[in-house]
Computed example of a mutant assay.
Amino acid sequence: MECGYTSLENFELISCDTLTHLPLDFFPHLEHLTIESCPNLLSFSSDGLPPTLKNLSVRDCEKLVVPLSEEMKRCYTSLERLMLIRCDRLTHLPLDFFPKLESLFIDCCKNFETLSIADRRGLQILTSLKSVRIMYCRSMVSFPQGGLLAPNLWGFELQSCLKLKILPEQMQTVFPSLESLALHDCPEIESFPDEGLPSNLRSLRISNCKKLVDRRREWGLQRLPSLRRFVLRDDEDVGDSFPEEGLLPSTLTTLWIENLSNLKSLSKRGFQFLRSLTSLLIWGCPQLRSLPEEGFLASLEFLSIWCCLNSKPYPKRDFLTPSLS
C-alpha cells in the first residue's frame, strides 16, 4: 500500500478474502472506517487505529482481533459509533476505552461474554453513550458489577442473549435518561433490578422472556409515570386473560400484544384504569374469543385485531390511526 492518502477521511474495505493485515498508518486523519467480509483479516497495523476515528463498523471478520490492550486506549479517544457484527474473536469490550462513544451495536459475536470496565474510577466517561444494542450474542453472561453509569443513555436493547440472567444493576440510578427498553428472546432473565426501572421510561417491549413474564406481578410498572407504550409478544404462558389488574400504569397510551397463544379474553378489570389508552393492537392470538362488552376503553381511538380466528365481531366505532412511536 502506497503513501499519499494523508487527507483520507472515509475508507471502506469489502470482500478482500486474502487480506490478513490492514496497515492504517497511512491514514492519520481517518474518521470513518468500514470493513466487511474479510474472513482472513487477523489484525490492524501495530499502531492500531488512527486516534481521529469517529465511526468504526466491522462485519463478517471472524478472525479479526480488535486491539483492546491498555496501550491501544489512545486509538479510541474520538470514536463515537461502534458496530461489530460476526466478529467471533471478540470476548469482551471495556467501555472505558471509548470516552466519546454515543452508539454501540454488537450483533452475532458468538464468543462475546461481557461489557466490562477496565478502570472502575473511569465510569463518568460513559456520559456520551446514548444507545446500546446487543443482539444474538448467545455466550453473553454479564454486565460489569455495580452497573454502567450512562446518564444520557436513552435506548437499550437486548436480543437473543440466551445465557444472560441479570440486567445491569441499579438501572434507575445509572440510566436516569432511559426512554426505551427492549428485551427479546432472553429466556434466563428473571426480573428487573430490585430498585425498579428508570422513571423516565416511555417504551417497554418484552418478547419471549418466559422467566421475566412469569414474575410480571413484581414489575412495578405503576411506579413509571412516563410509560406510554408497552409491547408483549411471543409468550405461551401469559394465561387465558390479560392484563391482570394493576399490572399496567394509567399513563399508557399504546398497548400491543402479539402471539399470546393461550390468550382467550381481555380482562375488564385489567383495563379499567387505563383511561389514557388510545391505541390497542392484538395480533396473532388465535384463541381470543371476546372483548369486554361494556365500559371498555372509552378513550380508545384505534383498535387492530389481526389473526385472532375465534374472536367475535366488535361493535363498530370510528377509530383514528395512532402514533406508535
Score class of each variant (00 low, 15 high):
H29W: 01
H29F: 12
H29K: 15
H29Q: 15
L30G: 11
L30V: 11
L30D: 13
E31A: 10
E31W: 00
H32T: 14
H32F: 12
H32Q: 13
H32I: 04
T34R: 13
I35H: 05
E36A: 12
E36W: 02
E36R: 13
E36I: 00
E36V: 01
S37R: 11
P39I: 09
P39Q: 10
P39T: 10
N40L: 12
N40S: 12
N40P: 02
L41C: 09
L41N: 06
L41I: 10
L42R: 15
L42E: 15
L42Q: 15
L42N: 12
S43Y: 06
S43H: 05
S43T: 13
F44Y: 10
F44A: 09
S45V: 02
S45W: 07
S45I: 00
D47Y: 08
D47N: 13
D47F: 04
D47V: 00
G48V: 05
L49A: 07
L49M: 09
P50Y: 09
P50M: 08
P50V: 11
P50Q: 08
P51D: 14
P51W: 09
T52Y: 07
T52M: 06
L53W: 09
L53K: 02
K54V: 01
N55D: 14
N55F: 11
L56W: 05
L56R: 04
L56K: 04
S57R: 13
S57A: 10
S57L: 07
S57M: 11
S57T: 11
S57P: 00
S57G: 03
V58S: 03
R59L: 11
D60Y: 13
D60G: 00
D60H: 10
C61F: 05
C61T: 04
C61R: 01
E62S: 13
E62I: 05
E62D: 14
E62P: 05
E62K: 10
L64K: 08
L64W: 05
L64E: 05
V65D: 14
V65E: 15
V65F: 09
V66L: 15
V66N: 00
V66Q: 01
V66K: 00
P67H: 08
P67E: 05
L68D: 07
S69K: 02
E70S: 14
E70G: 07
E70F: 11
E71W: 04
E71Y: 09
E71R: 06
M72V: 00
K73E: 15
R74Y: 14
C75M: 01
C75Q: 06
Y76N: 08
Y76E: 08
T77Y: 02
S78K: 08
L79Q: 06
L79V: 08
L79T: 09
E80N: 06
E80C: 10
E80F: 01
R81V: 11
L82K: 03
M83P: 00
L84T: 06
L84Y: 11
I85Q: 12
I85F: 12
I85W: 14
I85V: 15
I85D: 12
R86D: 15
R86K: 15
R86Y: 13
C87G: 06
C87D: 04
D88G: 07
D88V: 00
R89I: 00
R89C: 10
L90Y: 09
L90G: 02
L90P: 05
L90H: 08
H92W: 07
H92M: 10
L93N: 02
L93G: 02
L93H: 05
L93E: 02
L93D: 03
P94T: 04
P94K: 01
L95F: 07
D96T: 03
D96G: 06
